[in-house]
Amino acid sequence: MAEELKMITTWSQAVCEMRLGAGRQEGGSRKVTLTVGGEETLPFLFKEGALPHTPLIAVEIFDVPQDDEPEALRRDLRGISKDPVTWAKAMVEDIGADLVCVKLAGIHPDGANTSAGQAVNLVTKILGAVDRPLIVLGCGEAGRDNEVLPLVSEATKGERLLFGDAVQENYKTLTAACIADGHNIIAESPIDVNIAKQLNILISDLGMPLDRIIINPTIGALGYGLEYAYSIMERARNAALSGDRMLAMPFICFVGQESWRAKEAKVPASESPAWGDQRERGIMWEVVTAMSCLQAGADILTMRHPQAIKIVKSEIQELMKKAQS
């Protein structure tokens, strides 16, 4: 493999480095802080430039139980997913998730409609239970998120968490809160490199430093537009390395959410015997989606299944070994 990379490209710019979590001396309470980004070249082309940080896996957890959870997940998370705090702790300590991604689905007015106080309480409790940084997501309903997320942001001020998602139609409130409380922000665009850039400009125009923005390019699972997402990420990363500052942010890919929505991950073997065991199928769907995103340049993967997390984590370690060789 001595000649694996013959063409060496010299890029003009590195991706921004984003720091996640603040320790005690920085005004936070995290024992473990993390950094993503900083790539000087395309994924895993170690000969071409530095790739200083290992991609991270965040475990996706929910504040309230999800009724449409696929059977494989329900069974394998039995016992822990009823309580978000236990769930977060178990996935970090037993499975090895690098950080925790809490989706506050329950605050949706059409859903459980839990109060802002409950949301603040829950996030604070998880912060107390795990020593790692958190990702905090709203419910997706703009008005409600704008009420609740600033309160959660304020309550966790100084912890340097990652909040999301800011979208083109609704980014100002969350951005202002994150700037004020020292958090990072997720900028979500609908598989469109232009909108990704436009949103980064809008957010940075409000005063957010570029190294505190991470791009959610929106992905589709394997078979559901993954290649489209791949090419958008590739374009954005090429632009970033070629000098476009407004696209030089790390990527976060919501792998768990997307893969477990795929029919292939959900349909039981009884309905489609030729497809084989549902659990294995679901896990592999999540793994393959995650691995593809890594190849496209993902810096943080959010995932659900413990087994999938373990597999992808060990694959990442394998891939990163080359950095030392």
Binding site: D192, N194, I195, Q198
Partner: peptide
């Protein structure tokens, strides 16, 4: 379409 999307911004996505 790509040019058009890039132009849907003031003054342009590519400042």
């Amino acid at each position: 379409m790509d040019e058009y999307m890039a132009a849907l911004f003031f003054p342009h996505t590519d400042a």
